[in-house]
Structures are given as C-alpha cells and as structure tokens.
Design a protein around this nucleic acid. Structure first.
Lengths: 122, 122
DNA sequence: CGGAATCCTTTCGGATACTG
DNA sequence: CAGTATCCGAAAGGATTCCG
C-alpha cells in the first residue's frame, strides 16, 4: 500500500517530523548503536554511553520504548535487573544511526581543521 | 593512513562526539537534506524547511559553515543575496541524513501506533 | 540496581525590533 | 534580503537524594 508520499519531514505539521526529532539526537544515536550489539542492562548501557546521566538515559529509553524502538525487560529479582533491547523496528534504525556515528568518527579530523580555519579568521 | 581506531563517539571526551552532536540534530538533518538538492539562498532555505525561525536557521548555518559542511556565497547586490551550498565534506553527510529523514517518514505509521499503545497502557 | 523526584543551570528556540 | 541584537519562556540536562 501507500506510505511515503503522505509523509514529509520538511512539512512542519507532519507527524514524521516528531519522529525525526527523536531519532536525530545524539543520545538516541549512541544508545541505539550500543544496543545494536545486543541486549544490555541499564547499568551496562550507562557505562557504555560514557558521560550520560541516569536521568537522561532513563528519559531517552522511555521515549524510545514509547516509539516502539526499544523493549524493556524487567526481572523480579533483588537487586532488580532490567534489560533493554532493540525491537524489530529499532533494528531498522540501527544502520542509519551507526552510519551517522561512523561519519562523525571518520570525518572529525576534517571538521576540526575546518573549525580551526574558521575561528582563526577573526 | 589511520583514522577510525582513534575516534569513538562513545568516549565522552572524544572530539568526534562534538561532531555527532551537531550532525545528529533535526535542524541539521533538514537543512542538509534540502541543500542536497542544490545551492539555495537564505530565504528559499527558510521556506523549504517549514517552521524554522530566522534565528535558528542563521545559527545552524553558521555552525555548519564552521565545521566545513556548508559554504556561504555572498553577492554584493542590493537587496543582498546570499546562497548556501554543501561542501564536498557536506555532500558526504547528505546520504546518511537523507536516510535518517526517510526512515522517519517510512516508519512513522508504526511509531504512531506504538505511541498509542504505550499511552493507552495507563 | 534501577529508577523517581527534586532542584538548579545551561541551552534551545521563538518573537520582535533594528540595520546595511 | 539577510542578517544582528535583545529579550524571554521552554526544554534539555546535570547533581543529588531517596526508595523498593
């Protein structure tokens, strides 16, 4: 059936823009990249995404769960154990976000050089 | 020569994370997608990216210019004309960001359904 | 351990007025 | 037209404390 022609992120009222806003986000990118390697518990995720605060990790995971990108698994243990993993939908997002992360890593040298040039100009 | 092994966006102090932060951004994504179709002047860019304010457009373009992703062409006319276009480096970013935008458009139906399910659960 | 709640600071982003 | 400058409210995000 139809799908693309109706949605356009460039249209301010299009719902797809809300999805772009969630997905085009540095925390989302890093979390999805890490979860792409496999299911992980909260603490390990927090360690993997260096520097993320507990609050931000919790909030981002909630949003991703709400959008159907991440699934939350709670184990009734003590101390508690909670694991997160990408859903099938979330897996389709892994490639684009991994590509974006790799872009940042592969081109950072040129970006840094450009910044230096730009800043030196006054 | 070497490049990737040294950079990792997951490391909080790695410069590549600053680049990811700029690139994994909804305004950046929309602007780069639009500029991928060709050089455009400020006003047309503002029209194309529906709902963006002049301030945000100016600031984002400055940041992209500083990072060497966008080039600014000023014509000494009256009224003034300023055009923006992707640099060679910026062009390499177009595909990943277009892919991300398309992801948002192609999967928004499932995302909306997931949100409804999630929100209905209380 | 995995949060939720609170507080606080920083950043984002819109609106308006003004200028070359 | 393409900004810049200013002001202000909203949202992001960090630190800390508390709890099952």
């Amino acid at each position: 059936m139809s799908q693309q022609p109706d949605w356009n992120v460039l249209v301010s009222t299009c719902p797809s823009r809300t999805s772009l806003a969630r997905v085009a986000n540095k925390w989302t990118a890093m979390i999805v990249v890490v979860l792409g390697r496999g299911r992980l518990r909260f603490g390990d995720l927090r360690t993997a995404v260096e520097g993320i605060s507990g609050k931000v990790l919790t909030e981002t995971l909630r949003d991703l769960e709400r959008d159907g990108l991440v699934e939350r698994h709670v184990y009734a243990e003590m101390p508690p154990r909670v694991e997160y993993e990408l859903t099938a939908l979330g897996c389709t997002l892994h490639e684009p976000l991994l590509a974006l992360s790799r872009w940042a890593e592969q081109h950072i040298a040129k970006v840094l050089a450009a910044r230096e040039t730009y800043d030196a100009r006054r």
